[in-house]
Write a protein that binds this DNA or RNA. Sequence first.
DNA 1: AATTAGCCCTGATTGC
DNA 2: TGCAATCAGGGCTAAT
Length: 285
Amino acid sequence: MPELPEVESVRKGLERHLRSSTITKIRSLHHRALSAQSIAPLDSLVGLTVKDVRRRGKFIWLEFRDHELLLLAHLGMSGQFRVFRDLQEKPHQHLRATFSVAKRGKAFRLDFLDQRTFGWLRVDRGSDSGIPESIGHIAPDPFEDDFDDAEVIRRIQSRRSEIKRVILDQGILSGVGNIYADEALWRSRIHPEMRADKLSQTQLRRLLASIRYVMQRALESGGTSFDQLYVNVNGESGYFANKLAVYGREGESCRRCRGVIKRIHFTNRSSHLCPQCQQIRKSLN
DNA sequence: AATTAGCCCTGATTGC
DNA sequence: TGCAATCAGGGCTAAT
């Protein structure tokens, strides 16, 4: 499941392969591949040369030389970008769009695959803030220079809902999904159902540090792959899954104490935690 | 303005 | 064995 570390791994791969390359042809093969909010058809990008590949949270985009248009993408749950040097390589079953690309006289193919079709591509334009116009409401992620810890802590404390919901809100901070939310909460010993406004400065500082730590470590491992739904642009899996402390470890023992990892229901999905390390104090909640 | 339920989707797995 | 229910979950929208 692509969260910030997985999306960053993909971004790096795209940067390496696509920077200074020119798009020569684009085909869309699924009606949901192109976002309804796209300001122009994919064809508008034919002939443009990639200047940069950028990211905020889980959003990724290509910037082009001498052009205000850009290509924004979100991988959803199962979206993938795959680079194929061999143009004869058979198209994947879940192929949603395919880009023909040329770089220094060599032609290659960039495929956008997506089994569950929650991912999308969108032609958009830049804005004064330096990010695509349509994602102006997405907050900086914890690895950006202008991420302001004190300000984010203040915003978290202004919410009365459960802390896990708040750190998953991409308008407060971006890039955190279900896996790293559970991992960071475990690391900072905070119960996911604690009310955000009841947490102390110290706890929230520790939580932000844990989010950075966990996602940095995951990035160094190339991300978390449980199955073939997340792979990098070369089709390779990440190997952070075996370093996870709580996610997917229901019934196994806590790496910090003798507790048994529990899985609890959380808005139609799951939270994983150690009930020993992450206690919810009724009096404080 | 903050909060929350519901929706979009496919394929693997579980239950009867 | 076969079919149906369940689960995985990010972000947007609508309703409260």
